[in-house]
Nucleic acid binder design. Sequence first.
DNA 1: CTGAAAGCGCTAACAG
DNA 2: CTGTTAGCGCTTTCAG
Lengths: 347, 347
Amino acid sequence: MVTIYDIAKACGCSSATVSKALNNYPDVSAKTREKILKKAKELGFVPNLQARALITNKTWNIGVLFEDKSHSGLTHYFFSQVLQGVKEQAEEKGYDITFISKNLGGVEMTYLEHCNRRKIDGVVIACIDFEDPQVTELMESDLPVVAIDFITSHIGSIVSDNVKGLYEITKYMISLGHKDIVYVYGHETHVTEERIRGFRKALDEASIPFSERMLVKSKYSEREDSEEAVEYIIKRGNLPTAIIFPDDCAAIWGIKTLRSHGIKVPEDISVAGFDGVEIGEMVYPRLTTMRQDTSRLGKEASLRCIQMIETKVHNPTMTTIGVELIEGGTAMPPREKDVILKPKKKN
Amino acid sequence: MVTIYDIAKACGCSSATVSKALNNYPDVSAKTREKILKKAKELGFVPNLQARALITNKTWNIGVLFEDKSHSGLTHYFFSQVLQGVKEQAEEKGYDITFISKNLGGVEMTYLEHCNRRKIDGVVIACIDFEDPQVTELMESDLPVVAIDFITSHIGSIVSDNVKGLYEITKYMISLGHKDIVYVYGHETHVTEERIRGFRKALDEASIPFSERMLVKSKYSEREDSEEAVEYIIKRGNLPTAIIFPDDCAAIWGIKTLRSHGIKVPEDISVAGFDGVEIGEMVYPRLTTMRQDTSRLGKEASLRCIQMIETKVHNPTMTTIGVELIEGGTAMPPREKDVILKPKKKN
DNA sequence: CTGAAAGCGCTAACAG
DNA sequence: CTGTTAGCGCTTTCAG
């Protein structure tokens, strides 16, 4: 292990000068600097980040909270893409990413304590159970925190334009001629609220009366919950002509369930997802969905977090990322005669 | 920021005693320990890992190298599951996971230097371009390194039983009556070699003569490459009755390509994948494949790495993880008359 | 059982 | 421009 003292000795100068030369301080003569840099490389010097952090209080480390009740964690189709964005952007800015857990060195602790022990510079929260008091504790701490897909007053948040998302996809369904549409919604979070707002807005604009029947609860992204929701829709009778699911996986499992009941998609019932992840393209026909810009969601989160770290201003701004309709093959005009008699043009 | 000195002052003892009490050293009286522990909690003391690491040379941090040429990174269906395993196991043992990159604090550096600056305890490598000289440098360093799905002499490695994997799936195809089977192989790595060995072993046992035609090269897991491979197989004529792909995604894109040419799967041609990831279940019909135990692959890697860290013995052992045949709906007996005349029982 | 002292590797005033 | 000095927060001998 070669230290700045070794370099100092080899160069016949003090460790302070070495430190300055290595950190590009202006008050070192070009000649000395050159000699030091050369010697450092020669000796294979690698600065010790821990020692530096002890003084500077900067670790170049961003903590990422990334777990959920369903334990899909990193394998979550949507969030893994988001995380990739977080990672890429952080790395570009020179920050490392470390996952925050409740155990460090064999000692149980809260997320916040974990961050403090590691002296993490900031935190990005995604895919987590936001009701966990430990998450709240973290959000209320002095650390720079940015959440993805969650909105609260005291931290930064990056969200997709969920209102527009559901508005657009519903409008699309309506433009195909659908009137009897069900939105299967997930966790009762702010995101869900927004989506329902978008859903109702589209209905309102088309003067389609809203009814409670149009909303069916399911959990987020779990196979069984989606299947259950579809079973429920089938059992209660009077099938809708279109179903919008809260995410692509839910849509795909939903389609499988519909098909297992002999219901054809899209002939008998149109289906749309939400997310626009790759699996939507892998199934046949390609899933109709709203694409969220997962990569940007992640990158923006990193960027905001780093900004908060570097400016030391923790203003709780919210950033909204646009969404985009993907016209796949799982939605088509409904069979109903009245619609066939007066078809609408696609807008 | 409360330090051990604050506690010492509050307790009327020295910082050394506080340190000992906090770290469960035996040479502290029960009474003093109790007082210190109580005060520490009261003051909200959080130990500083950096300061400790400076002395103990242990950071409780495992570096993870996780990138690839295709930049799918964390969104890679197979490796994201593996990584989840790495993460879970590491967290259980009290280690944090930090991604290794080529940039730290805005300074370009090699992977090894990154590890050294952070004083990472060990490294798990997955999903990486193993030809990168920087990866080699890392593997040849003094750090404990474990690789997943890659074998080399000087580090630990965790791999699926690839020989058996391809052997079993080929045997399964043969048992269905297939003789004209193609294996689309990926990157020419050790893994591919092993798989081809398993493939040939199954052919040999069934006395099916091997021909170079039975091997078609494609890259690993990229959509276009898989499509290309299928196009090639179709164009050269004389379609095989079964195709085995190197991973599930490749199989799914392959099936899509076959279908786009009017070739029915499994009626006209049987298809199998390799990996057993969830998407295989989402498509219709369910993909026939070999399941790799991704979670164990990851957990075992973490465990080996931690073992090397804690025992300080870096023996380059290899661990093989079992695989399991998933009989989906994309493989069935071929149409050929001679096979229909003398059907084989499924073994 | 307890504490004084040294030091992990580095930075940051402040003199010179 | 360069060096001295004093820590960052913690652990670890080694006396007492």
